[in-house]
Amino acid sequence: KRPMNAFMVWAQAARRKLADQYPHLHNAELSKTLGKLWRLLSESEKRPFVEEAERLRVQHKKDHPDYK
């Protein structure tokens, strides 16, 4: 399984919050909304998630050196 990218790291927590706020939204609508919200974030707001995704990528490479 591939490591999560920055969006997926962020969306993991954001999806729970959004689903709690809008329990009537279908998963497809949640995903579209999350995409729009992510694009509205500034680079500095995204930075911690980009850094975490990079950490996960490096760890994955270490754990699975033959993964392509």
Rank of each mutant, 00 (worst) to 15 (best):
K36L: 00
Y22Q: 10
V50P: 10
V58D: 11
M8K: 14
V58M: 09
N5C: 06
G35R: 10
E54P: 09
G35V: 05
R39T: 07
R2M: 01
A53M: 03
F49Q: 13
S42D: 04
A53K: 10
Y22V: 14
L34A: 01
A13Y: 01
V9Q: 14
P65A: 10
H60P: 09
A11W: 07
Y22E: 03
P3W: 08
A28V: 11
R47F: 03
A28H: 12
E43I: 10
E45T: 14
M4N: 05
L56K: 12
L37H: 07
P65F: 10
L41E: 01
K62C: 08
K36D: 05
A14F: 06
Y22P: 03
R57L: 10
H64Q: 14
H26R: 13
H60Y: 06
L25C: 00
L34I: 08
R57E: 14
V50T: 10
K61L: 11
W10S: 00
W38V: 06
A53R: 11
W10F: 00
K68E: 14
A13K: 15
Q12A: 05
K36N: 10
L30W: 03
R15F: 01
E54M: 05
R55I: 08
L30Y: 04
E43P: 14
E43W: 14
R47H: 03
R55S: 13
K61A: 09
A13S: 15
V58G: 10
R55L: 10
S44T: 07
Q59N: 07
S42T: 10
A53I: 06
P65D: 12
N27E: 12
Q12F: 01
A13R: 07
E29I: 15
K46Q: 01
P23W: 07
A19F: 02
A53L: 04
N27F: 14
R2Q: 01
A19D: 02
M4E: 07
P23H: 15
A14D: 00
R47V: 08
H60D: 10
W10T: 00
R16S: 05
A19I: 07
E54A: 06
R2I: 00
R15S: 01
E45A: 15
Y67F: 13
K61F: 04
D20S: 09
S42Y: 05
S31H: 04
A6G: 00
R39E: 07
F7P: 00
H64L: 10
H26I: 10
E51H: 04
L34M: 05
H60N: 13
S31M: 04
E43M: 13
G35H: 05
A11I: 03
T33E: 14
Q59G: 10
R57S: 10
D20K: 09
E54G: 06
Q12D: 03
L25G: 02
F7Y: 05
E51K: 08
